[in-house]
Lab assay of single mutants.
Amino acid sequence: NTKMVRFKKGDSVGLRLAGGNDVGIFVAGIQEGTSAEQEGLQEGDQILKVNTQDFRGLVREDAVLYLLEIPKGEMVTILAQSRADVYRDILACGR
């Protein structure tokens, strides 16, 4: 149940992230009207890879910085997997 989305970065990627470290990086929110939303990313999706950067094992701050450093107008390719069950557990633990 993995999906790959590809879009051109606007002012931002339009994602709020949660998790990090051993639990993985998850989409915690999506800005309305962004390409990330239009391409089908959803809250609870685990981000496995962005462009050439493996997101598994990253701390959340490093994942956020990586997304911020992608220049506006560059193509962004995100490999994600729907993991809403794991995401709910992360929220319940306050991570």
Rank of each mutant, 00 (worst) to 15 (best):
G20M: 02
I25L: 06
G20F: 06
E61H: 05
R88A: 11
G20T: 10
R56P: 04
D45N: 03
L67R: 07
A36M: 08
G24D: 06
V64P: 02
R16F: 07
T2C: 12
G33W: 01
G20P: 01
L15I: 15
A92P: 11
R6I: 09
I47S: 04
N21C: 14
T52R: 10
Y66E: 06
A36G: 08
N51T: 04
T52F: 01
D54I: 01
S35Y: 07
A63C: 09
S35W: 10
E61Q: 09
K9C: 04
R60N: 09
V27D: 10
S12T: 14
D62Q: 13
R60W: 13
F7H: 00
R16E: 15
M75G: 05
S12G: 11
I70K: 07
A18P: 05
G14L: 03
E61T: 07
D85H: 13
G20H: 05
A36E: 13
D11S: 07
Q81V: 13
E74A: 12
V27S: 03
G14I: 01
E43D: 06
D22C: 08
E43S: 05
E61N: 08
Q31A: 12
F7L: 04
I25G: 03
L41N: 04
K49W: 12
C93N: 15
I47M: 00
G44R: 01
G40N: 09
L68C: 14
G44F: 02
Y66R: 07
V5Q: 00
G29Y: 07
G29P: 01
K72S: 03
R83F: 05
N51A: 05
L17D: 00
I30N: 04
A63G: 04
T52V: 04
S82D: 10
L15M: 11
V86D: 13
I25K: 01
G94V: 05
G94Y: 02
G73Y: 06
G33I: 09
D62L: 08
R60E: 12
E32T: 12
F55Q: 03
D62K: 12
N51C: 00
N21S: 15
D85V: 08
T52L: 04
L17K: 00
I47R: 04
T52K: 10
K72Q: 11
P71G: 00
Q42F: 06
A63K: 08
Y87F: 11
L58H: 03
V76E: 01
L41I: 08
T34L: 08
D89Q: 12
P71A: 04
K49C: 08
Q31I: 11
I78F: 00
A28Q: 05
D54S: 09
G20A: 06
L65A: 15
G24V: 04
V50T: 01
T34Q: 08
D11Y: 04
K49F: 10
I30H: 01
I25M: 02
V76M: 02
G19V: 01
I70A: 03
R16M: 10
Q31N: 11
N1I: 14
G44V: 03
V64K: 12
A18K: 07
T52S: 14
I25F: 05
V64C: 11
R83G: 06
G14H: 09
E74F: 01
A92V: 10
K8L: 13
I90E: 11
F7A: 01
Y87Q: 12
R60K: 14
G14W: 01
G14E: 08
A28E: 11
R88D: 12
G24K: 09
I70R: 01
N51E: 08
E74S: 13
V23D: 02
G40Y: 00
L79N: 04
E43M: 07
T52I: 05
R83N: 12
G40Q: 11
V64M: 15
Q42D: 07
K8P: 07
L15R: 04
E39H: 14
E61K: 08
I78K: 07
S35T: 14
L68R: 15
C93T: 13
A84E: 13
G57H: 12
G14P: 11
V86Y: 12
E61D: 12
I30T: 09
L58V: 08
L65D: 15
D11N: 10
E61P: 02
S12E: 13
R88Q: 12
L91Y: 08
R95N: 15
I30A: 02
N21P: 15
G73S: 05
R6S: 11
K72D: 04
G40R: 01
A36L: 12
D54V: 05
A28D: 13
E61C: 06
K9N: 02
R95H: 11
L91F: 13
A80N: 02
Q38T: 11
S12N: 13
